[in-house]
């Protein structure tokens, strides 16, 4: 539990940037709803964080997933088409970014949260707005895809 700031501090430190990112990518009206969704998801998983590092990247990962889910709700049949963020808002651990950038957003988030943040699948499900099983499947699909890519290289 050490090193994890009280949620109030985490929220105050990142809320402005999260809202700015969401507004840039989803428009003002939609961003307001996604803002709340992002921090509620973060709150749900916060008690199970193993450490307090990279919280900015962590919350931007959650915001990106809220964006993906919203886009999917709008166009359920379309391929996911969330533009990758600018360099400074890349929602992933930097060490893992080169490795995971090619993955679809859900799988990338699941892999990053599992292997970068040591979150358990229950918490990852909370972050992704799904459940433990879906989180497990997304992470394993992501790892399989990475393995395949590596073999093909």
């Amino acid at each position: 539990m050490s090193g994890i700031p009280p949620f109030e501090r985490f929220y105050e430190a990142h809320k402005d940037e999260v809202l700015a990112v969401l507004r840039r990518r989803a428009g003002r009206d939609r961003a307001d709803d996604l803002f709340q969704e992002t921090f509620l998801r973060a709150l749900r998983a916060y008690g199970r964080l193993e450490h307090g590092e990279h919280l900015r990247a962590w919350v931007l990962t959650i915001a990106t997933n809220a964006l993906v889910d919203a886009a999917r709700r709008d166009r359920p049949t379309a391929e996911l088409a969330v533009e990758p963020g600018e360099e400074d808002e890349r929602p992933a651990l930097e060490e893992l970014a080169p490795l995971t950038d090619g993955l679809p957003p859900k799988e990338r988030a699941a892999v990053v949260l599992r292997y970068g943040y040591d979150l358990d699948y229950d918490a990852i499900g909370a972050v992704l707005g799904s459940n433990e099983l879906a989180a497990r499947q997304a992470a394993s699909a992501g790892v399989r895809r990475l393995r395949k890519e590596k073999e093909q290289r």
């Binding site: 539990m1 009280p6 949620f7 109030e8 929220y11 916060y46 008690g47 964080l49």
Partner: peptide
């Protein structure tokens, strides 16, 4: 004392 999810 109570957990990190402390919010005003």
């Amino acid at each position: 004392q109570f957990g990190p999810r402390v919010l005003r």
